[in-house]
Each structure stands twice: as structure tokens, then as C-alpha cells.
Design a protein around this nucleic acid. Structure first.
Lengths: 143, 143
DNA sequence: CCGAATCCTTTTCGATACTG
DNA sequence: CAGTATCGAAAAGGATTCGG
């Protein structure tokens, strides 16, 4: 009975999120008491998700990542990789070759993030048609 | 056997994400073929998640939302609400009172987003300690 | 009470040039 | 190859003012 299960899942999610919201509100949204904003902060930036996806299947070297994500600049790639390494979501291994090569791979913690990320991606694909239609309707009403 | 189930879930997620990445790469990351970036774009901005959480438990009026999220400006609240309304994630109902009041509530589509959002929030809370520790270690190594 | 419009500050991002 | 440094453009965000 998928309807019932979905209903329960929704109630649970709704309760979980609104309860957390109330708690953070009590604490005036102190980052210490509000892990989500702190932890998920980097996921919001432009390239993080794409990099994590590129590394989901296999480890890659710096220039392989550049080729995999053609429109990223060296600067942004470096910066985003640093942040992810700092958070422990990926590890950086330098091979002492000439010229040097550096390989990036997801840590177990980084891989554990793939699970909720895949849920979200799946939701996005599912909702895409509805959202596109809603946008058209909205834009049509006001020129 | 939770270990096995987690393992399978991880494999599935990894495959799903890396496959999607490959597909988008083939299409040069055309937004038409890459719904996630398009759909999830607004979720990345500073206030969207907080607003959705504030509305998860109950509908609220504009000024109630301002009080619920003390450090948001009127401008940003208006703008973020507009984007969410445009995407069909929430609905806006005007009551013809004096002075006017406007109520915002999640649509079914908006509520369906709560489910993956709750997963992600749960992951963030779970990973918070690891990430904090990783950051300390990283920062300690380089002054 | 709700929100549009304006102005200004801060942050983010990208192009370029340079190093081991 | 894998970065760092610097600079300027662009976008996001905030404060303020005004109007229905």
C-alpha cells in the first residue's frame, strides 16, 4: 500500500523539519545548534554537487576533473576541492611523479552523502515537469 | 541486516549519480537535459530551506514568517517567496481585509520536497561531528 | 500589513598571469 | 600537471523609502 507509506513518510518528514525549525529558532539560529546550515553550506555553491557526482563513480585527477566539467575554472575547482577536503568528504593523494599528479576520491563520509543526494536528484527529475509548467503559467499571467 | 541494506543503497546511489553525470556530460550540461541544476537552483540560495521548513508545520502569513526568521530582510523574503510560488512549491492566498493579509502554504508538490529535505537534514546532523572534527584537523595542519 | 523600487555593500566567480 | 595570486565583473544581499 504505497499511498499509506507515502503519507506516513510525509508526516514524519514534516514533523521532523518543523520540529528542527522550532529548536533552531529557540536558539536564535546559532550555528552550533543548527548543524544543517553549517554542514550543508558548501553544498549550496555552484560546483560542489557536480564535483561529488563526477567522483561518485571513480577517483579522478585534477585535470580529469577539469575535462569532466568543462566550464569550471581552475580557481573554482581548486577552491571547491579544498573545501570538500577540509570537510572530510574527499581525500587528496599526491603522487611524487614528474610532473606531479594528484588524485581525488570520496571518503566513506563523502560516499554516505551520495545517498540523500540521489534522493534529491530523483525528486528533482520527478518534479521537473510540474515545475516547468508552473513557471510557464506564472510567467504567462504577468508580462 | 542493516549493513547489507546500507551497502546496496550506497551502490545504487553511486551508480545513479555517476550515470546521470555521464548523461549530462554527453549533453554538454544543457539545462533541458539536466533538470537537477535547474530545479534545485533555488534551493541553493540562502533562505529557501529555512522558509520551507517554517512552512512545513503550518501555513503562515508574511509578517509571521518575518518573525519566525528574524534576520531575513523584507526584500529577501518577498523575493524568495516569489520564486517558490513561481515554481509551484507554495501557494499565496490574499485575504481582502484592511489591512490586507497574505497567507503562504506549501502545495502538495512543495510538501513532497520535504521528504528528501528531511533525509538531507538527517544526514547533516549525523555527519556534523565528523565534519567539525575534520575541519579542526585540517586547519590545525596549516596556520 | 504587504510589497515594489532604489541605492549601496558584500560575496562570488572567472580570466589572466605566474610558480614548483 | 597542479596549483597560487591578483584583479575586475557580476550577482546576491541589506537598508531604506515609498505606495496600495
Amino acid at each position: 500500500m504505497p499511498g499509506l507509506r507515502e503519507g506516513n513518510l510525509l508526516s514524519t518528514s514534516r514533523l521532523a523539519l518543523s520540529t528542527r525549525f522550532d529548536e533552531w529558532q529557540q536558539g536564535a539560529f546559532d550555528p552550533e545548534l543548527c548543524p544543517v546550515r553549517d554542514v550543508l553550506g558548501h553544498l549550496r555553491d555552484k560546483w560542489t554537487t557536480l564535483i561529488l557526482m563526477a567522483l561518485a563513480g571513480q577517483p579522478r585527477r585534477f585535470s580529469q576533473l577539469r575535462r569532466a566539467i568543462p566550464d569550471i575554472s581552475k580557481r573554482m575547482l581548486t577552491q571547491t576541492l579544498r573545501n570538500l577536503e577540509r570537510d572530510g568528504l574527499l581525500s587528496r593523494q599526491v603522487f611524487p611523479t614528474r610532473p606531479p599528479s594528484v588524485e581525488y576520491r570520496l571518503t566513506p563520509l563523502g560516499e554516505s552523502l551520495l545517498v540523500p543526494m540521489a534522493h534529491l536528484a530523483s525528486w528533482a527529475e520527478h518534479a521537473h515537469a510540474d515545475i516547468t509548467e508552473s513557471r510557464s503559467r506564472f510567467d504567462a499571467d504577468r508580462p
